[in-house]
């Protein structure tokens, strides 16, 4: 087996290879950027919640409108994402249940509802629960490339335009609020973007890769950098690199593309962890 057959030949097999890699890289980059903000606000597991509740959103939109068109799907996922954010926030404010448990109660209940609605009422819809979990990178349609490309540009533009208030609201929400930064609106906007990204991504890569793509690059970048802009760049690089290497791995092993990308991303994280261990924070016994 030569280097040519390993690295170059797959690109000559057809459009799907190019399109799949492009889509996965776009997902990797846009999720990495959003994930940094989730991570820094200690909301990493909201990504797990939002990835799962996109399913009831999609099913609900299908039951209400009878279509699986992109507009209905977007609105459904956005609606269930914002509903989840609102419910978690409501339980958190009432103060009787811990934050992490509040996230868990809400998303498992909504996901369960989604699976039941899907199997009981919408079995004729072209929605498949295990496809929602695992996605299909290689069968992704061309318009998904445009959607994700546009979304990536929109996220980058929003980060650049709102850099100061975002920076402040992320690291010091109390001061930001005193200075008149609309912290709540930024939070809702972030959650809205994550919900839209989730639904745009997971046709291609599945809910689990979305969770991985939102959390792992941000955690890797947090190990290696100390400044927000550096963290965003490293995270985006991690997202794109794990998409590319994961694509190769899945071609070599003939296995699940989304799964391979998640594994590569996790290996990159562990490499960063081992590399970044300094004497001061390492070696301390439990």
């Amino acid at each position: 087996m030569s280097l040519y057959t390993l690295f170059i030949e797959p690109w000559t097999w057809g459009d799907w290879m190019w399109r799949g890699t492009l889509v996965a890289s776009l997902v990797g980059v846009v999720c990495a950027l959003l994930g940094c903000f989730l991570y820094l606000r200690r909301l990493a597991l909201m990504s797990d919640a939002l990835a799962h509740v996109a399913l009831p959103g999609l099913v609900g939109a299908f039951l209400l409108t009878g279509s699986t068109g992109p507009a209905a799907m977007f609105l459904g996922a956005l609606g269930s994402g914002l509903l989840t954010t609102g419910l978690v926030e409501g339980i958190r404010r009432a103060g009787h249940t811990r934050d992490d448990a509040a996230i868990g109660v809400v998303f498992t209940a909504l996901f369960a509802l989604g699976v039941i609605l899907l199997t009981a009422f919408a079995s004729d819809a072209d929605l498949d629960a295990s496809c929602v979990l695992f996605g299909d990178v290689l069968g992704v349609p061309t318009h998904a490339v445009w959607t994700l490309g546009g979304l990536t540009l929109a996220v980058i533009a929003a980060i650049v335009a709102l850099w100061r208030p975002l920076h402040l609201a992320t690291f010091d929400p109390d001061t930001a609020r005193l200075l008149g930064v609309p912290v709540g609106a930024l939070h809702l906007g972030l959650m809205g973007f994550v919900s839209i990204t989730t639904v745009a991504s997971f046709q291609a890569v599945g809910a689990i890769l979305v969770v991985a793509a939102l959390i792992t690059p941000a955690a890797t970048a947090h190990l290696l950098t100390r400044r927000l802009h550096a963290m965003l760049l490293v995270a985006a690089g991690h997202g794109a690199l794990s998409a590319l290497l994961g694509m190769y791995l899945s071609v070599w092993l003939n296995c699940s593309t989304a799964g391979a990308m998640v594994c590569v991303g996790a290996l990159l994280y562990f490499a960063a962890l081992l590399w970044s261990r300094k004497p001061r924070d390492g070696g301390a016994p439990p």
Binding site: A219, C255, A260, C263, A266
Partner: peptide
Amino acid sequence: RVSRTRPDAALGIALSAFFGLGAVL
């Protein structure tokens, strides 16, 4: 214990990494 990764993110990384491996297998 060994890194500055936050506990919630550590959980998310392990969750997705193991599930991803499961998807591959």
